[in-house]
């Protein structure tokens, strides 16, 4: 464990808490992409299948359980409790355009052709593009609530911090996982224009609006 990975995990946890707070406090999931949240739940489900079989540490197990529970909790709030506030008209990104190629790629490019490893690879690839429906939704509505932009900033920062973690582990532990690194870089790059807007607007106290 290193400081980059720890702060990355904390940023990830913070993002999930911010989203749950937004939906719970505003009693609305307006501006939040249900498709991205469904894909995140799928990412955690396919990545943490070894939760029972492969104990790494109390921290690892606890965080995995929190991530799985909170992702399904978010789906519950979005599609059951506050379903009436789900903005399906703007959440129109075709998930199959992401899931199908990612599934195909995870069969072609992986470390080991075993069910658990392919599912892990699928979850790594899927996570790298899972935010696209959310970013697409913001581009369609042209704006995002401030707390939703904080959620996205924390979520984007987590994988950027993981990249620093991989640099650290490469030099100090000889650890290198090409699949995770490449997918992590793609994932972080997808946030770049959002990061620019967030830093130039939200940090100046303005609302996050996209140039028309």
């Amino acid at each position: 464990m290193n400081v980059f990975r720890l702060t990355g995990d904390i940023a990830h946890l913070l993002a999930i808490i911010l989203l749950l707070m937004k939906i719970w406090k505003t009693r609305s999931c307006a501006g939040v992409s249900g498709k991205s949240q469904m894909m995140f739940a799928l990412v955690f489900t396919t990545r943490y299948l070894d939760l029972i079989t492969n104990f790494i540490s109390l921290y690892n197990t606890t965080m995995k359980m929190i991530f799985i529970a909170s992702s399904y909790g978010t789906l519950y709030l979005m599609f059951l409790k506050f379903r009436a506030t789900y903005d399906s008209n703007h959440d129109t990104f075709r998930m199959e355009f992401l899931v199908v190629p990612v599934a195909g790629l995870s069969f072609l490019v992986n470390h080991d052709f075993s069910p658990l490893e392919i599912l892990w690879t699928f979850s790594i690839y899927l996570e790298s593009v899972a935010i696209l429906p959310q970013l697409f939704m913001i581009s369609k509505t042209g704006e995002a609530e401030t707390i939703t932009s904080h959620y996205l900033f924390a979520l984007g920062s987590y994988r950027a911090l993981y990249i620093l973690n991989w640099v650290y582990r490469f030099y100090f532990e000889g650890f290198f996982d090409l699949i995770a690194v490449v997918a992590g870089c793609v994932q972080t790059v997808l946030y770049c224009d959002f990061f620019y807007l967030y830093i130039t607007k939200v940090w100046k106290g303005k609302k996050l609006t996209l140039p028309a």
Binding site: R5, D9, H12, R47, D50, N54, I56, N60, M63, K64, F67, H111, W120, Y162, N165, R169, G174, F175, F176, D177, I179, A180
Partner: peptide
């Protein structure tokens, strides 16, 4: 290069 026998990252 070791690192992906067991995935120890979240």
């Amino acid at each position: 290069c070791k690192g992906h026998e067991t995935h120890d990252e979240l």
